[in-house]
Design a protein around this nucleic acid. Sequence first.
DNA 1: CCATCACTTGACACTGTGTAAAGTTGACAC
DNA 2: GTGTCAACTTTACACAGTGTCAAGTGATGG
Lengths: 193, 193
Amino acid sequence: MSRDQISTKTRILDATWKLLESGDKNIRMSDIAKAAGISRQALYLHFPNRADLLIATARHLDSVKNIDGRLERSRAAQSGMARLEAFIEVWTGYIPEIHGMSVALRAMRASDAEAASAWNDRMGAVRHGCAAAVQALAKDGDLNADLSEKTATDLLWTLLSVENWEHFTQDCGWPQSRYENTMKTLAKAALVS
Amino acid sequence: MSRDQISTKTRILDATWKLLESGDKNIRMSDIAKAAGISRQALYLHFPNRADLLIATARHLDSVKNIDGRLERSRAAQSGMARLEAFIEVWTGYIPEIHGMSVALRAMRASDAEAASAWNDRMGAVRHGCAAAVQALAKDGDLNADLSEKTATDLLWTLLSVENWEHFTQDCGWPQSRYENTMKTLAKAALVS
DNA sequence: CCATCACTTGACACTGTGTAAAGTTGACAC
DNA sequence: GTGTCAACTTTACACAGTGTCAAGTGATGG
């Protein structure tokens, strides 16, 4: 609160987020500056470059959206099956909220190593959730005997990728609810014995 | 053969392909020109812009690799199941050969409408193959009764996406053979009654 | 009243794409 | 041989977008 109600840094992050969410591609630093109500050069007083700004926005998003808190719910489940379902519900519900961000970050992966590692870091967290759900299934003896825990985690992780969400909801035109239900069905078909 | 053994246009396409295949990101027009042994400006005598060059390279690749001919094999299968398997074998075997190209084309989708439609066109062809396999399954009465042909096609198409291939072979480190076998198993688990 | 912080303004270097124009070279026609 | 044409080269430049730099402004606070 040094200057305004909310700090300029936060205003920048919110503006960036909003622009990404709007689905506009090719967002320039000048667009972000305009949206945040400051000069383009002032952005560089807060973030060294575009990549760092986008990465900071991703982290900001995660903290505002409280993904960790939401996943808490799935950790509370009694059975492995319930945990798998709860995890799928939480994660698939989260995807549309971060989709604009994810498009931008993935687009930057090709040219920016730091963007790539920011994305890998976030997806690593998802994988961790998948692994925990698989482990809970295995503990209950519900995991398909043909699958190692590693393999089962790979399958679930891939199934629940943002790219697959895009494919179903964008390219195939499925509504979110159908996507979510299908993911549950497929996950069970693939993982549960 | 106007000038050299092979035409300059072909040399450009081959050079572009080779560079894309090498996995280098951020391939510039000047890189392509150098690889083709001509000046950067000469590229523009053959292709109006970068997008058109990449798209032409994609088509060139498809024609050299003869994807249509390869898919012929799956059309010859006797049963629906055999057709599904043959289609998966052909397509999954094709993915690694076009992967460099596909990365470049997908990266361009965000900023270039023509690149997006070139990619959609190619993926539309894959979807067509999926639909035919699903139809063959349905004809044999082997299609899961819970699924419409459209839904089954959506599932198979998504399962066999290039993005999922990347996920399994790159991010999960699976060898190609394992990827292929898993796709067959998963496809059957998801589609066959 | 002075200093400092947060910002603005204006200028500029750099990269990569695409355009433009004039020059070179070799093949082919007559 | 001369002329012509196509395919290419060389040089130059416009343009967008990123990132840097330096000088200036204006409010806040000791």
